[in-house]
């Protein structure tokens, strides 16, 4: 494990990304211990600037502690992003695997549907879905997954296409294993590495989409998410700049750290890949 971490995090940028992302996860996990009680409580004088004593990031126009809101917000934002990523990867893997494995008309149909979802304006479509289904954390997760699965499906399809003609897959087929067994225990485990890289990208995008949806006021009103904080803070941007600037910085840090981890993962998983993207 140590050896794995040492070789994985040997690039400084990957190490930084990993540390930042893990800190966000830890903060989300211990949010209730750090700031017990609802972040919606009014605890101090309104409009305190950042670095006030006891209120590191200041307070909003109702005297609510922005640090507490940010800490609790990490929980909402991360949980939506993680669920959406899992769902996206699941949908994309199933469609991509079936499409690549069976080929012919199944593949054609699946690819046309994939292209359709890639052609339409995805963020707008996500908003339409959330608005019509009624805004909630569940509908946001669903909307993100519905607009994000195509890239995963294409990736998995391409992997399956190259793997299905390999000797070990032929052997499994001759051995009389069922299609599902071949797909899930012989082919897909070999496609794990690119899938992992793609999951980090999907998660970074999921955070951006979620924050955009909440920023527009479509999020769960009973849960503080980072995008929601920016959305409410922006009305006071001329007086209390920190109310929108600081939550945005939290989003930026998290997305940026995920991108760094993703970059690190892809170089680590494929060390033979040279800078030009070709295998020598």
């Amino acid at each position: 494990m140590i050896g794995f971490l040492r070789s994985f995090a040997s690039r400084p940028s990957t190490l930084i990304g990993l540390l930042v992302f893990l800190s966000v996860v830890v903060i989300a996990l211990i949010a209730d211990w750090l700031y017990p009680g609802s972040p919606f409580r009014m605890v101090a004088r309104p409009n305190l600037p950042p670095l006030s004593t006891g209120y590191l990031m200041g307070t909003d126009m109702l005297g609510r502690d922005l640090t507490a809101a940010l800490v609790h917000g990490s929980r909402v934002t991360l949980s939506i992003a993680i669920l959406a990523t899992l769902l996206t990867v699941a949908i994309g893997t199933i469609i991509g695997a079936i499409s690549g494995y069976y080929g012919a008309i199944v593949d054609d149909t699946a690819m046309r549907v994939t292209e359709f979802f890639q052609a339409i304006p995805s963020f707008l479509f996500a908003i339409v879905l959330v608005a019509v289904v009624s805004p909630s954390r569940l509908s946001i997760v669903l909307a993100i997954a519905i607009v994000s699965w195509p890239s995963v499906a294409r990736l998995v399809r391409a992997e399956v296409l190259t793997l299905r003609t390999r000797d070990f897959v032929r052997a499994a087929r001759v051995g009389g294993l069922s299609d599902m067994r071949i797909l899930f225990s012989h082919i897909l485990p070999n496609a794990m590495s690119p899938l992992l890289v793609s999951a980090s990208v999907v998660m970074a995008t999921a955070i951006l989409i979620e924050s955009g949806i909440s920023f527009l006021g479509l999020g769960d009103r009973n849960a503080v998410s980072w995008g929601y904080l920016i959305g409410t803070g922006r009305t006071a941007v001329r007086i209390n700049w920190w109310l929108s600037a600081l939550p945005g910085f939290a989003i930026f840090l998290t997305v940026w750290s995920l991108n760094l981890v993703g970059d690190g993962l892809s170089t680590w998983l494929d060390p033979r890949k040279t800078e030009t993207g070709r295998h020598p």
Partner: peptide, 22 residues
Amino acid sequence: STAFFAMPLFWTGLLAIIFFSV
């Protein structure tokens, strides 16, 4: 570019307003 790539658009916009307008 990696940094700008990770910024939510509306946040960059609000920062631009804070700096250049306010």
